[in-house]
Design a binder for these strands. Structure first.
Length: 647
RNA sequence: GCCGGCGUAGCUCAGGGGUAGAGCAGCUGAUUCGUAAUCAGCAGGCCGUUGGUUCAAAUCCUACCGCCGGCUCCA
């Protein structure tokens, strides 16, 4: 039950508090409220309100409520840690997407074994039900307070603030610099759990000290916490690294090296389906296929700027005493293809597409299954065009990306990334490039965020972040505008007026890395691929060996019809065969017993456990063919419509 | 690269100073069976690699390699 602690009112300036006003408006809501919304701001219930503006309660179902709860949980955790580990220094502790964390500096890093004791201490604090009290302190006083306690991180934070007054929150014996708002009291923290420990640099800067971070999550009630933990379990089941092994798609090997994928037959057929689709879709959209070599002379990388700006990510070697670099990007060969003959303004845009294998030296701690590797294949293209064609080309790529995202059932969001610190090219070129991307974004009418300083070293970019079935987001497509490489490689075309002009270039990928994309796809579909992508589309199962002959005939007919079918003639019970096909997530099984043999029919079983009516082989093949072709039909239809609107 | 955890059979995991274990998978045989595991037998390991401590190391310590969770970076 929520009651304003009497001492809290003493800090107020004689005004009505949010809690009191809410209690007058709606006593029931006031009791449940964790904070209040007033004048577009979130307030503590103990805070004075602007009487002119509307006041609404923040109730447990609201998204902001969870943030308040988790932020308060972080404070409670910090108090617990300070009590248990004297001398520990606190850094920052925000609420995050699905929980909270707090960073600490202690004589040793925390380990998972420390967590139960911290949780127990937190429960004690929750039981004490101390109120969260907010005070506004003069910055000098606050600075002195934290300096006296040796809390150098807090001091640094205060020094970075502009305001003359800073917010100070207290609960029990713990005082923290904080903007708030917080729960009325610690007792309102319903269900929480500390989940992991990790190292984290102070302010995310590699050059600054590494702190010890404790992650946790919190909810209003135990049921929600349980659901959340179940969701994490579900995500684990979908983990592409686990499914990749179980479904025999790919593997990694110590003996081969970190971040280097080995594709097994089932994974390779999946890749091939996607790559073949890419090839045909690119050809249909006016691209040409090309391919460059894996190693190119270092001198060329120096010329492009990669040696100066990307060296630490590259692998170098020597051939006959000449230095070579293994390609981390595909653009150089494409530049030379452009330069191989004189180009007319009529030839543009030139769209060069390459499924290019690139190698990048990633730091040892960052590899992650297929989503972060050291060798990967980009569905890369370079669009070399006249300046007046730039916007149309960008829009064309955006439409291409949209078509593919819809094909796989992904949502996505857009980000515009601007000039980074380490970069090449003139200010004017960066401005022109950024303006072109911005203009295309505006024309497209799509919403986008701006990511300052996150562009490639040679140009700004639009990134597409796709969201998978578990609401996680992944970088896939990117469009990068580049005025610099055409300059460095002295690309030109002869314009209408007979004068040589400098073209502009776009770097772009649609799926990004085929490896990463397949990793994301595996998790998105939980390994149960739609028919057109399934490595094995049909498995033919016999009840007894009397059906062997019919089974082999059917299997061959399916293969002849370009379907991916396998047959299980083993001396096993049908239940065992079904189970194995089910675990491999094969979309269709075909059951063959004496009945089917006699009638020259087959009984299809779907992945969801349902049987279809027994039917002829011809009918079954038609069914599969149609289901397989449907996504492609929709893709082509969308592509045609898209082209129409672009003119 | 940094912080923490981990590395035992193809897979999932037990064993934690006295010389290696289970289930599943594999192989062999029997069984001919109707929708998520038929039965029996057999075989399988330089306990990630390398140094060291010890009479003795899968077990304790060093360093490498790799994996997992984060940080930083990124397709």
């Amino acid at each position: 039950m929520f009651v304003l602690a009497p001492e809290m009112t003493s800090t107020l300036q004689g005004k009505n508090t949010a809690g009191q006003v809410l209690a007058d408006q709606d006593p029931k809501a006031a009791r449940q409220a964790v904070a209040a919304r007033n004048n577009g701001r979130l307030l503590d219930l103990s805070a004075p309100v602007d009487p002119q503006a509307e006041l609404t309660p923040v109730l447990p179902g609201d998204p902001e409520a969870l943030e308040v709860l988790r932020h308060s949980a972080a404070h409670i955790m910090a108090e617990a840690v300070k009590e248990l580990f004297p001398g520990v220094k606190v850094a920052i502790g925000p609420a995050i997407e699905d929980g909270f964390y707090y960073d600490f500096d202690y004589e040793r890093p925390f380990t998972p074994e420390d967590l139960p004791a911290i949780e127990d201490k937190m429960r004690e604090i929750v039981k004490q039900n101390a109120s969260f009290e907010c005070e506004a302190w003069d910055r000098g006083k606050a600075r002195q307070h934290f300096a006296d306690q040796g809390e150098q991180f807090k001091v640094e934070l205060i020094d970075g603030l502009e305001a003359e007054e800073v917010g100070i929150y207290r609960q029990g014996g713990f005082t923290d610099l904080c903007r708030g708002p917080h729960l009325p009291s610690t007792g309102r923290l319903g269900a929480f759990k500390l989940t992991s420990v990790a190292g984290a640099y102070w302010r995310g800067d590699e050059k600054r000290p590494m702190l010890s971070r404790i992650y946790g999550t919190a909810f209003f009630d135990k049921k929600e916490l349980k659901q959340h933990l179940a969701l994490i379990e579900e995500a684990k089941k979908r983990d592409h690294r686990k499914l990749g092994r179980e479904l025999e798609l790919f593997s990694f090997h110590d003996e081969i090296g970190a971040g280097l994928v080995v594709w097994h037959p089932r994974g390779m057929i999946l890749r091939t389906i996607i790559e073949n689709l890419e090839r045909s879709e690119h050809l249909k959209r006016g691209y040409s296929m090309v391919q460059g070599p894996q190693i190119l002379k270092r001198e060329l990388w120096e010329r492009s700027g990669h040696f100066d700006n990307y060296r630490e990510n590259m692998y170098f070697t020597e051939v006959d005493e000449v230095a070579y670099g293994l390609k981390p990007m595909n653009c150089l060969a494409h530049m030379l293809i452009y330069k191989s003959k004189l180009r007319s303004y009529r030839d543009l845009p030139l769209r060069l597409f390459e499924l290019g294998l690139v190698h990048r030296h990633e730091k040892s701690g960052v590899m992650h299954g297929l989503t972060r590797v050291r060798a990967f294949t980009q569905d890369d293209a370079h669009l070399i065009c006249r300046p007046d064609q730039l916007e149309t080309e960008i829009l064309g790529v955006m439409a291409f990306v949209t078509d593919f995202m819809e094909l796989f059932g992904f949502e996505y969001s857009l980000e515009l990334s601007t000039r980074p610190e380490k970069s090449i090219g003139s200010d004017e070129d960066w401005e022109r490039a950024t303006a072109a991307l911005t203009k295309a974004l505006i024309t497209s009418g799509k919403k986008y965020d701006i990511n300052e300083g996150d562009g490639a070293f040679y140009g700004p970019k639009i990134d597409f972040k796709l969201t998978d079935a578990l609401k996680r987001s992944w970088q896939c497509a990117t469009i990068q505008c580049d005025f610099t490489l055409p300059e460095r490689f002295e690309l030109s075309y002869i314009d209408r007026d007979g004068e040589p002009k400098r073209p502009v270039m776009l770097h772009r990928v649609i799926l990004g890395s085929i490896e990463r994309f397949i990793g994301v796809l595996v998790e998105h579909y939980a390994g149960a691929f739609p028919l057109w992508l399934a490595p094995e589309q049909v498995r033919v199962l016999t009840v007894t060996e009397r059906a062997d002959e019919w089974a082999q005939e059917i299997t061959q007919a399916l293969i002849d019809a370009d379907l991916r079918a396998e047959v299980d003639l083993r001396n096993e019970k049908l239940g065992a065969k079904v189970r194995e096909a089910q675990m491999m997530k094969v979309p269709y099984m075909v059951i063959l017993g004496d009945r089917e043999v006699e009638e020259r029919q087959l009984t299809p079983r779907l992945r969801n456990g349902k049987n279809l009516q027994s039917q002829t082989l011809e009918k079954f093949i038609n069914l599969l063919k149609e289901e397989q072709a449907e996504p492609m039909r929709l893709l082509r239809q969308r592509a045609r419509e898209g082209r129409g609107t672009e003119g």
